[in-house]
Simulated scan of single mutants.
Amino acid sequence: MFFRLLAECHPDFARWYEKSSSARKALQLGFEPTRETFLKFFGREKYKSGNDGFRFGAWTGHEAQDQGAMLMLACGSKAEFSPNFLWLFFPKEALGKERVVTAPVVSGAMRALAVAWEPEWAVATADGLWDELSGGSRLGCFVGWMTYFSRERGEVPPLPAPVCVETVGDEGTLVTLTPERLTPSNPEHVALAWRTQKLLEERGLFRLMVHPAAIRRS
């Protein structure tokens, strides 16, 4: 379901290749993201993680000055420390960024993730803003350009403009800080992110994704 919904966001997400050590080899590993395909992937030794987990990487296959998007996911593990995640990396190159990293596409990807995977929390953000707002932790919970909260996290309060708060079906709420792409080099964007994060923290929406006890045991 996730790949189908993602393809509806932008044509670039309509084709996928297994991740490999080189672009040339990866371009020979195209696949249709169907249930039957992933049942085969689940059985491959190279995608096994530990005794019970599954780790997989895929790429949209764009080359040259437009490197496309990449996806990494892990699921099925019984480990307490970061057992399940999905990372979708958007293009960093100018051509790909201008075409794909837009509010409608990113919002669509966030909704696809929420509907297909039902996460507790998800964030779409730039590297610099991630580093600043997360306090250096990839296991906590923080705000980004777009932030998704499941209903189990609590109710998202009304937030001051230009922040947009929208429901995602019955699953949860999507918070979008600005209609334009949020950038860590823009001090107004950073200040808005901090203000919004503080308001959401006060409502108890930023509990840790991984309990510190699990981190110590790892």
Rank of each mutant, 00 (worst) to 15 (best):
R151H: 12
Y17H: 10
R217I: 08
G53H: 09
R44N: 06
R153K: 13
G43K: 13
A191H: 09
L177I: 11
F206Q: 03
K46M: 12
E8M: 12
A23L: 14
E8F: 05
V143C: 04
H10M: 10
P83C: 07
L73M: 15
L71W: 01
H10Y: 04
K48L: 11
A69Q: 05
D66N: 15
F13D: 03
F142A: 05
V105R: 01
K48A: 10
G53S: 08
Y47L: 09
S49R: 13
V101P: 05
S49A: 15
A14Y: 05
V143P: 01
K92P: 05
A94N: 06
A26K: 02
G76I: 07
L29T: 07
S134G: 04
R138V: 12
V190G: 02
L182F: 11
G140K: 00
R35G: 12
P11T: 08
L129K: 00
M110Q: 03
I215W: 03
A193W: 04
F54C: 07
L27A: 07
G169L: 11
A79K: 12
A114L: 03
T183P: 00
A214W: 14
A161R: 15
E171F: 13
L129H: 00
S150G: 08
G50Q: 09
T167E: 15
F2L: 15
G53W: 03
L205A: 03
T178Y: 13
Q28G: 10
E32W: 10
A122E: 00
T147A: 02
G68M: 01
P158D: 09
V168C: 08
E171N: 09
P179E: 14
P83I: 08
L159W: 10
F42V: 06
V105F: 02
H10L: 08
W16P: 01
S137W: 09
G57E: 07
M209Y: 06
A193I: 12
M72Q: 15
L208V: 12
L5K: 10
A74N: 13
E118A: 13
F85Y: 14
R151S: 13
G76R: 04
G135S: 09
S134R: 03
S150N: 11
E202Y: 07
F41K: 04
G76Y: 01
C75I: 12
A124S: 03
N186L: 11
L200H: 01
R44K: 12
P104Y: 02
V156N: 01
G76V: 10
F85P: 00
T178L: 13
E201N: 11
L182S: 03
A124I: 01
G204L: 04
R151P: 00
L192R: 07
R207D: 08
F3I: 06
P11H: 08
G135V: 10
L177F: 08
L199H: 10
R111S: 04
G50A: 10
H211E: 11
A7R: 10
G128N: 05
W194K: 15
R217K: 14
G68P: 02
G172W: 02
N51T: 14
P212Q: 06
K48T: 11
F31D: 02
G204Y: 06
K97W: 05
A79S: 14
I215G: 03
R195L: 14
A14V: 09
A126V: 07
V105K: 00
R44T: 03
P160S: 07
G144M: 11
L199R: 11
H211P: 04
L27Y: 04
G96V: 06
